[in-house]
Design a protein around this nucleic acid. Structure first.
Lengths: 343, 343
DNA sequence: ATGAAAGCGCTAACAT
DNA sequence: ATGTTAGCGCTTTCAT
């Protein structure tokens, strides 16, 4: 750790020119070649590097964008973060990771804290949403992009996906491979994804064309492996009149892994006796044994889209709110394949 | 998004008092109750919230700490990030995530960029280290804490772990459960962890007390599942004179998962025919099937320790460099247990 | 093309 | 206890 750093004034003195010329020379805006050389040399001698804070104060820009999520441990958010970073870094933006906590109130507080002005924009993926949060977002002093639910109506930029339709794809696939008695392990219903996925499952299994014999939901406390394991134990211990479950749809990959572990405990082979699908198409699901059939909701694409929206918004504040939708897409893997290689 | 925000001057005008009194009243330092009430009221009316940039410029503190890693997708770093966040957030610090890229040069650049002064400290976990990086860290204008290799000699705060010893624990365990022909799937040797783990494996398998019959290394391109799969295919296709491998030590959990997938391809049961150990004790390893025997290097603890070091350093710059070591610890799970429940 | 000077929002030293 | 004022490092208008 060295002593305090050189300022622009010191560079100016060293070069024997004015402060203004020094600034201009370093930015290459309207300065003679001679001036530029002279100033550059002085800056190099002093090991000068511009101060981000002074610059921000003057420009009223911090070159920082925050990404706020409930749980950075969830692989979905990590994927989004990586994608966001890739879009923003080339534009000179740093990404600040913030933890919201699971409640709406804590998320709302965080959005309100933006008024301290340490970021130029925010990308937030709230697990739960209410009117207060929506209002806080509208009042926010910097652009906010929401990943999760469409809030175009409310005049908020958002990137959404149709997880209900995604659930339909999973159900359709299971029926197509001959499964008839479906269980659904969902997360908490009061969360945005939980509610959407429940709607999707209910719609798919109550549609006129549904060829299955039975459909039943069990709710996990949380979108985690442990909660999925517990929920699956409860679900699989029940014996529907139509016969034992031959497939379980899980609301995300972590829950699906919990389901598979529960199946193994009960001596049910996957996918032989029990086919299992996940959602989010995570790396962990892809490398799991058996690898997980999963509905991709385009985590990386959503991150990319959100980052682009923020970038646009930072430049042009006036445009009307935009909404970008990323379609779900099913990837079939071992956990629903009849011809899985023997263990 | 509302219009521009109220400043302290505006609050002062509204309250009809001086700027200084306003600042003091809001901080509760030496102001009468009357003054405090008056100012608070004015602030509330205007919806005032302090500007982080103005404050930073004056205090020469940003209340930000950066965490720089090569690959935020690696679960180890996510665990560290979570731990760092938990320590720093209560102290009012935000955490900025930065991506270094895999090379030393890019990491060195990043450390040098600190001179722009947008953070009060840096926690960095470099995959590779060289003299230039060490020098850049010493020259850095803010405290830097290194997670990975002990750099106490160089006067740099660091949090290390003894992964070589950890490898010894894995080898000892395998020998103890009767395995005699060990393969080692390591990552790149020119990385800090790769080199340390190689030393650990070599030391453990060439020690006088080593009861095994054979020990051989195969190097993966990278510390990932895909690289582990490829390396394991190469390793397992070889037939040592002493007989086929009955155990593989992997340099981390991701590689171990790759090894298990390769074993399955080749029809080798794990742990029956082939016992496999990982390292890092990640969530993904714990929920994998079979769950992974793994050497914990205390990712969360290292993150916590690093965050505390930065915090101390921000307050007191003068203290001599400190080095904190977190001991490795073996967790035995299904991938090396003889009595694994049948699939 | 160059220089002088204002001012971004805040805190703290100094004066009253 | 309260007010006045300087100044953190930078960019940019304005004048030359």
């Amino acid at each position: 750790m060295s002593s305090s750093r050189a300022t622009l004034i010191q560079v100016a003195e060293r070069a024997g020119v004015s402060l203004a010329s020094t600034s201009r020379a370093l930015h290459g805006t309207g300065a003679s070649k001679k001036m530029v050389d002279r100033v550059r040399a002085a800056a190099a001698e002093l090991g000068y590097s511009p101060d981000a804070i002074g610059r921000s104060l003057r420009l009223k820009r911090t070159f920082q964008v925050a990404f706020a999520v409930a749980d950075i441990g969830n692989p979905v958010y990590v994927e989004m973060l990586t994608a966001i970073h890739e879009v923003l870094a080339p534009h000179g933006y740093r990404v600040v990771v913030m933890s919201t906590g699971p409640t709406v109130a804590s998320t709302t507080d965080l959005v309100r804290s933006l008024s301290s002005g340490f970021v130029d924009g925010l990308i937030v993926s709230p697990l739960r949403t209410d009117d207060a949060l929506v209002e806080a977002i509208r009042q926010a002093p910097v652009p906010v992009v929401v990943i999760g639910r469409s809030l175009e109506q409310q005049g908020i930029d958002s990137v959404s996906t149709d997880s209900a339709a995604g659930l339909g794809q999973a159900v359709a696939h299971l029926v197509e491979i001959g499964r008839r008695r479906l269980g659904f392990v969902n997360g908490p219903l009061d969360t945005t994804p939980g509610a959407a996925r429940q709607r999707g499952f209910d719609a798919a299994t109550s549609a006129p064309g549904f060829a299955g014999d039975h459909a039943e939901t069990e709710r996990a406390e949380d979108f985690t492996v442990a909660a999925g394991l517990a929920a699956a134990r409860r679900l699989l211990s029940r014996r529907p009149a139509a016969g034992p479950f031959d497939a379980v749809v899980a609301a995300n990959d972590l829950l699906a892994i919990g389901v598979i572990r529960a199946a193994r405990e009960l001596g049910l082979s996957v996918p032989g006796t029990l086919a299992v699908t996940g959602m989010d198409d995570t790396e962990i699901g892809r490398v799991f044994q058996p690898s997980l059939t999963s509905v991709s909701l385009g985590s990386a694409e959503r991150g990319t889209a959100a980052a682009r929206l923020v970038l646009d918004r930072v430049d042009d504040v006036a445009e009307p709110a935009r909404q970008i939708a990323i379609g779900p897409r099913l990837f079939v893997r071992e956990s629903t394949s009849q011809e899985e290689s023997a263990r």
